[in-house]
Nucleic acid binder design. Structure first.
Lengths: 256, 256
DNA sequence: ATGGTATACTGGTCTGACCACTATGGCAAG
DNA sequence: CTTGCCATAGTGGTCAGACCAGTATACCAT
């Protein structure tokens, strides 16, 4: 029996969502000033602290600008960010979509790394490869050094923005769906194989062979996708009480 | 006389940073339980509300997990996310780095869009081109439809993750440094030229010519970089009271 | 017209209290 | 000895009212 886990959404959460909705719908335009905390509190029938917490949450998300002594203002980019915000927390990026995106982006990054990597950076990458190899006893199949490998390759590209993008991509993998998938999906053989890929990629980067690095990275992710594809029937039949993500990558409607 | 704008950092901010530092340094391991809010309050010499606000900020960032009646726990992925968090808010991504990253990523996305765009999506892109063309009277040079164009191209790729990445890249442009730059950098001619580029890119996507779309996108960003490069001396001599970002893209040290 | 100032309003913090939920351990029934 | 209940202590969640510290504006003296 599929159970939907209850979550007693805290007040600050509900308030934040209401405000986000108003921003997304255009009811609150950029640069507009929200009512004062005290006003909001009485209008929502709650006390000030939850209101403050909601506003701080929105501030952290970059949707709103809190100016002491003046008020709370909707940021210029709030409208466009509101959708980003929702997409990210909804975690509605499917595993296949994610892998496709990584294939495109990370292969480019690998090529860039091959051009620019310093010796220190090469060593840092080597470190992660060794960590996985020497740690085959680890029961947790989701090895932290896996992410670290890809992040350090991005660092070797010498471009901070690319490092950030890589981190964002891996953050997406922490969604509940993705996490559950890997329980079924990961095996020791697969990890060893992956680490072999890592080593090959590193070799190409060492040789400053950007074409090879790019191709190897692409192949690496190709194989991961292939394995995932193979394991897919098992996964979907076991964890059915979850929104089914699109299989390969059919067309998708616009999202406003 | 260069003035550094003062920002009276609120308490919750300081607390959050301390905790982030502890997580990043490994002092607080994943799954560890933080002291209770009351404990933290007395230990930090403040009252509970600011502590709560800090924890909520960290929760929003996905670094920490607040469980009612139980406590606050460090999330599994917190350590790796902590660095992302800092990089993003520090805004230490230089304009040239950002453009380089966009050139790599967005050209790939444009190619993908040329393969998969639906007619509705093409219309949505056309909309943004028209919006900029018909709105030449707008005094604000930073036209919202510019971002929208690029986001919608990403949407046309049919991959949600790519949309998210595009949004992240454009969010980076909202840093104070980037914002100031564009004041000097933007002109009406440049905007018209950019919009012409947009139109050409759209045409290529319409024709499902992914090679052309990719190349045109790259050229578009190449030109933006060229213009920025030209305007650079003016910018740096006027707004000198800011951390100087790296010029073209020299090697960069590792950042842990 | 200029410049300072009084003042009302805003967010920031504090206090202390109470509610709702979780975890734990002891105790009683099986 | 196991099982299941339940009291209890500790946690986050919320409330109330107060005061502090900045901001903005209108007013007044110069």
């Amino acid at each position: 029996m599929p159970l939907t886990l209850v979550e007693p959404r805290r007040i600050y959460h509900q308030i934040a969502e209401q405000i986000v909705a108003m921003i997304a719908s255009g009811e609150l335009l950029p640069n507009a000033r929200l009512p004062s905390e005290r006003d909001l509190a009485v209008r929502l029938g709650v006390s000030r602290p939850p209101v403050r917490e909601a506003l701080i949450a929105l501030e952290v998300e970059g949707l709103v600008d809190v100016r002491m002594g003046s008020g709370v203002y909707v940021r210029q980019e709030a409208a466009s960010r509101a959708s980003t915000w929702r997409a990210r927390k909804a975690g509605d990026v499917g595993p296949f979509e994610l892998l496709a995106a990584r294939r495109m982006v990370e292969s480019t990054i690998a090529a860039e790394a091959a051009k620019n990597a310093t010796t220190e950076q090469l060593d840092a990458i080597q470190e992660t490869v060794d960590a996985i190899r020497d740690d085959s006893s680890r029961y947790d199949l989701r090895h932290p050094a896996d992410r670290l490998f890809h992040v350090r390759v991005a660092e070797a590209s010498g471009n901070t923005a690319l490092v950030l993008l890589t981190n964002v991509l891996w953050d997406l993998r922490d969604g509940s769906l993705h996490r559950r998938i890997e329980e079924y999906f990961s095996t020791h053989e697969l990890r060893d194989q992956s680490n072999q890929d890592h080593e090959d990629i590193l070799t190409a980067i060492r040789a400053h062979d950007s074409r090879a690095a790019s191709n190897l990275m692409r192949q690496h992710l190709d194989r991961v996708e292939r394995e995932l594809s193979r394991a897919w029937p098992t996964i979907t039949s076991t964890a059915r009480n979850e929104k089914e993500p699109a299989r390969p990558a059919p067309k998708r409607r616009n999202r406003v």
